[in-house]
Amino acid sequence: MMNNSETPSLIFQGVKIIDTFAEAFPITGTRVIVTAVSREWAFIAATTSTGYASSVIGCDTEAGIERELSPDETPDGRPGFSLLFFAFSREALQKAIVARVGQSILTCPTTACYNGLPIDPSRAIQIGGMLRFFGDGYQTSKLLDGKRYWRIPVMDGEFVCEDKFGTVKGVAGGNILILATTQALALQAASRGVAAARKVPDVLLPFPGGVVRSGSKVGSKYKKLKASTNEAYCPTLRAIAASQLDPNVSAVYEIVIDGFSREAVEAAMKNALHAACGEGVECISAGNYGGKLGPVHIRLSSLIS
C-alpha cells in the first residue's frame, strides 16, 4: 500500500491535499424543531434526543443539533433548537424519531416538537400521529393551514407535537481526514474545521464534537463485526501495519458530514478543509472504499479549486 507521501497530491495553504475523494451515500433526513420554556430546557431535550446517534453502523439514526433558534424563529415563539436526523429509510427514520421524541422530548418539561421541512405527503413520516396514543383518548389536535398539531396531556400541561414531518433524500458520509504532527495540533485543526463546517445550513456533524478519532474500515478479522479500526491511519501501528501515515504524522482526526444535499455536504467539507489547514497539519485526505460503497464521490481537489 502506498502511504500518503507516495500518492498524488496538491498543495493548498502549505498543506498537502491528497488527490482522493470522500465516498458518500444516499440517506433519508429530516429536521425536528424542539422548543421549551427556556433555552436550558430546550437544550436538554435537544441533547438527550440526539444522544447515541453518531453512526448508523451502530445506532438507529445519525442525529445532532444543527443550530440554536431564537424565539422569533420557532413556531411557538419560545427558545429552541433545530435537530437533524438521518437514517437509511423513511421507515427507519420514523421508528427512530418516534422512540427518541417519545423518550427524550415528550418526557422533558415544557417541550414541544415541530416539523422543520416542507411536507411532501408521499414522503412524510408520522411522529405526533404516533405519539398521540400516549394521550389515552384525552389527546386533541389542531389543524391550521394544513398542519396538524397533536396536544397530549402531560403533568405540566400538554405536549404539542406536529403530526407529520417532511423528509429529504440527502447524503451521508462526507468526510475529511486531518493528519498532523501532534495530537494537540490535529485536534486544534479539527476543531477549526468543525466550527467552519457548522456554518453551512442543512448539515450535521454526527460524531461527538463533530470529530471522529476512530476511523473505521469495513469488516474485521472477527466475523461478527461490521467495522473495525482502520489500522492504516493509527500512528501506533505504523511499525507493524500497512500504514498510510508519513513518519512525522502523530495523530489523525476525521470530520464526518451528513447533509440534506450533495451541495450542502460539499460546502461543509470545503469550509472544514480550508479552516483545518494550519500549524502542524501535514496532510488532508478523505475516507473511501475504492468507490464500491457509495455512489457519491466528492473529490478533495474540487474543494480547493
Partner: peptide, 12 residues
C-alpha cells in the same frame, strides 16, 4: 397553564 399551541394561532 401556558398552552404552546396558542402562539401558533397568534402568529397566524
Amino acid at each position: 397553564y401556558d398552552p404552546a399551541f396558542l402562539t401558533i394561532y397568534f402568529n397566524k
